[in-house]
Design a binder for these strands. Structure first.
Length: 124
DNA sequence: TTGTTGACTCCCG
DNA sequence: CCGGGAGCCAACA
């Protein structure tokens, strides 16, 4: 595991997700784009899947590009995710979708730079 | 080192 | 709107 600094990718994902304010959401692609690679959206989901229960990362605020909760057969997690979001004020329509035009959090340059710095101060 | 695996997206019917 | 298929790439066995 020569992976001393390796949680790099995951750490960045977590730092960015922590920047999403309550009642707002972002897509896996948004986080990937903020990291500089729009194509690693899947890895964002993967990184979140590795989180433990007691984490301080608001993973529930990350949904897919369609404004829906991604659930690969994990109905339990998806229900918890929806419940948490609704408790924060996020609204789901009749088709289980969130209006990204209203609830999507848009990252600004400084915010991203700050989060990435927080994840890996040494890198720059 | 190679192969497999996705909490994803985009594109096409 | 819904389903299927290809692309992408970091982690892990």
């Amino acid at each position: 595991m020569t992976r001393v600094v390796s949680p790099g990718f995951r750490a960045r994902v977590y730092a960015l997700v922590r920047r999403v304010p309550p009642g707002r959401v972002v897509t896996y692609g948004d986080v990937a784009a903020a990291l500089g690679s729009p194509r690693v959206a899947r890895h964002v989901g993967w990184a979140l899947a590795a989180l433990s229960d007691g984490t301080d990362v608001p993973w529930q605020r990350v949904i897919n590009a369609q404004g829906r909760i991604s659930f690969k057969g994990d109905t339990l997690r998806s229900r918890v995710q929806r419940a948490r979001l609704e408790r924060e004020g996020v609204v789901f329509d009749d088709r289980e979708r969130v209006d990204l035009g209203v609830f999507r959090h848009l990252y600004d340059v400084e915010e991203v730079a700050d989060a990435l710095h927080e994840a890996s101060p040494e890198a720059e």
